[in-house]
């Protein structure tokens, strides 16, 4: 059942409309959520917007209005612009890779016969692991820059010297570390979604395609499976893209918030964390949050347009 299909108008019997007990019950039932979302989502947005227009150093109180100065400062702040570039590069790596790997896993697992439940479990289980734990293994063991690191011991077998991984700017090995950590953590989840999509494809479509002479393998994938997975693909790409732009945990724990390693790749959330929590500059911190939200909206729209154009041909 697709969400879009079921967004129909709820049934409303006219005799009950205006029923006072119904109205009372309705408000009692929605009150906790309505109050909670107001206090913890809507108020912060409004308050944050006012703070972003204020000079709010060491204070969370709205006062000294400075217009759009905080926005101007950030948009000319090289470190902030670099953080936007960093997250864009990260998204360019992680989004297509996650799509390809999770779809590939789903296709493999779907045809593994009796082995399907076992393989599905193994690929899905990293979803139970936190980014902090993954960062710990990646940083201290797998990609430790010293000779005893697992990756370094492996390449030593081929006669290559140890690589510093996250301690060196060129070539950017740190991208390999950051991207593989997130891939390991999240491809299982998206594989599950693709598996559900694959199971929705009616058998008759495959059979019809075979009768029409479509060979199994790439032509079947290109002309039958991918078009059938269209809505699944859109939701996977969208969820993934929005999550990528809010990356914080692995960057903070692998590269740190400040220092030489952090300056290699500091995403916007890590930068805003330092700005608000360390420098206590809530004016700029909130302004940055709104700029990032705008960027996420824009990128999501652009991605939607690209997928939309693909549909036209």
């Amino acid at each position: 059942m697709k969400l879009t299909r079921s967004v129909s108008k709820p049934r409303l019997s006219p005799s009950r409309r205006g029923d006072r007990s119904a109205t009372l019950a309705f408000w009692v039932f929605v009150a906790p959520s309505l109050i909670g979302l107001t206090v913890f989502t809507i108020v912060p947005i409004v308050w944050g917007f006012l703070l972003s227009l204020s000079h709010a150093q060491n204070t969370i109180r709205v006062g000294q209005f400075v217009g759009l100065a905080n926005y101007g400062d950030l948009l000319t702040d090289e470190a902030f612009l670099r953080s936007l570039k960093t997250i864009l590069v990260f998204a360019v790596f992680i989004v297509p890779l996650t799509y390809a790997v999770s779809l590939g896993l789903a296709l493999l697992v779907n045809r593994a016969g009796w082995g399907t439940p076992f393989f599905r479990t193994v690929f899905f289980i990293p979803s139970a692991v936190s980014y902090v734990v993954a960062a710990l293994v990646w940083k201290v063991s797998l990609f430790n820059g010293l000779s005893f690191g697992v990756a370094n011991q492996m390449i030593a077998g081929f006669g290559a010297g140890p690589i510093a991984w996250i301690g060196t700017a060129s070539p950017p090995w740190y991208w390999l570390v950051l991207v593989t950590a997130r891939l390991w953590l999240q491809v299982g989840f998206f594989m599950i979604i693709f598996l559900a999509g694959l199971q929705e494809i009616p058998r008759s479509i495959y059979e019809a395609a075979e009768v029409d002479g479509a060979r199994p393998g790439w032509p079947m994938l290109r002309h039958i499976i991918l078009p059938q997975l269209r809505s699944t693909t859109i939701s996977v790409l969208l969820l993934n893209l929005i999550a990528a732009f809010q990356a914080f945990d692995e960057f903070y724990n692998i590269l740190g918030a400040t220092g030489a390693n952090a300056s290699l790749a500091r995403p916007p959330l890590v930068y805003l964390y330092s700005l608000a929590l360390s420098d206590q500059d809530f004016g700029r911190g909130t302004a940055g949050a709104f700029i990032l939200t705008a960027v996420i909206f824009a990128v999501t729209l652009i991605q939607g347009r690209i997928i939309g154009f693909g549909e036209a041909d």
């Binding site: 959520s33 309505l34 979302l37 206090v39 913890f40 989502t41 809507i42 108020v43 912060p44 947005i45 308050w47 944050g48 917007f49 703070l51 969370i60 929005i242 732009f245 809010q246 914080f248 959330l269 805003l272 964390y273 608000a276 929590l277 809530f282 911190g285 909130t286 940055g288 949050a289 990032l292 939200t293 996420i296």
Partner: peptide, 19 residues
């Protein structure tokens, strides 16, 4: 309620911290 769904959660941590 739907409109609050549009806001990317982690981004609002600075304003939420203030509140």
């Amino acid at each position: 309620i739907l409109s609050t769904l549009m806001i990317p959660g982690a981004v609002t941590f600075v304003p939420s911290y203030a509140v």
